[in-house]
Nucleic acid binder design. Sequence first.
DNA 1: TACTTCGGCGCC
DNA 2: AAAGGGCGCCGAAGTA
Length: 462
Amino acid sequence: MIPTEKHAYQLLHDGALAFADVEQNGMRVDVPYLDKTIAQTDRKIKHLTKRLRDSKFFAEWRRIFGQKTNMGSREQLGHVLFTFMGLECKHRTPTGKPKVDEGVLEGIDVPEVQKYLQIEKLKKARSTYLQGIKREVCGEFIHPFFNLNLARSYRSSSDHPNFQNMPIRNKQMGKLIRSCFIPRKGHRIVELDYSGIEVRIAACYHQDSNMLGYIHDPKSDMHRDMAQQIYFLTKKQMTKEIRFCAKSYFVFAQFYGDYYLNCAKSLWDTIDRDKLKLADGTPMKEHLRSKGITELGACDRDESPVPGTFEHHLKFVEHDFWKNRFKEYDQWKWDWWNEYCATGEFQMLTGFRVHGDYTKKQVINYPIQGSAFHCLLWSLTQLNHWLKRKKMRSCIVGQIHDSIVADVYESELDDYLGMANEISTKKIRKHWPWIITPLEIEVEATGINQSWFTKKQIEIPT
DNA sequence: TACTTCGGCGCC
DNA sequence: AAAGGGCGCCGAAGTA
């Protein structure tokens, strides 16, 4: 069956009804913890702010801005650093003002600037998350909205509060915020994720033979191979951290349409920031030096890269990536774009006919992002339907693009996981035969009555 | 006071 | 040839 627009409509209709259930279910909040944490964070911010205010650095700041002094203003901080202290401003925003973001400030060797960053992190936690959650608490639940009508890519979005951007990468911040969320009594929070769904769905479009090889062969690993090539490593020298860097800053960046200059720079900066080492402990920069690479390079798009620089190497890696390794994927991107240019529209595998004014990257990314999300949406809808039909105590409480968050009753865990696995990896492929790649899920769960922060990977019962 | 824009930052 | 895809929310600053 080739999906048609009618099926596409039905997907969103049923999805919207399922989301209404999810919104009504809501996520339980540990209100005493939330209140305690707001007060605590408040105190921390006040304390750190006072210390910064008493510094010589801030006296200078106040001398410059007088009555208008505002410690929360990055623009003012940038002015102090780049105009009055004479530091070189290397990065500007699209409107030409000095960039004063975390990346820039981290590279400035002034203790007060590092204090400022620490305060800003806490303010983000307080305003966007702690107070944002508090504002929406009703009883002891929040009921975030999940929208199907806002994202141009045909994904979903979430608001009031946005459930799809709760901190997790920064462990400290993740703990602070995710500890706010707890399961219902006698339940666990169970989160299932599609593994690499975008890569797999992309392959359903371009059908690149090398990519399909990677997806089908469990012993192969695209990110590991790219890490080895980027950093000149043998399999034995690899670490998880190195693989993660290659995956985030090269492979995914390339898939989204980035190019070697940005990739080279972020990969290079990460080496020092994360203190990357080989498996045997050799520092990464020392290793690269032994391979003849001593510096990043100018990263100026008007100058061609100099041999011996990391930038020059990455240009080669990028070329090899698209012209050798994944050349059929590369060809598909052009064919897909040209087809759009000729007809003014493209059709997603999930049946959406998309027309309008789009850039090349949008034309290439939307069908992949959109269809990948639609797999999640279809699975969530089926799973929700099953939970209701069986009158189970477990319920779905949220969704994050490629994952489903549920509040699962102790004795229903195995049934829930069995059915979730059945629907999201097997039934979906009967429903959509265009999915030519295997789909897999991973599951993380908290202990009974434990907060979302404590989730750990668990096995899916067979 | 109400609104918009910008820069920034959290997530996939 | 150009040069990071998709979201929502925050505070600062400017305008009406």
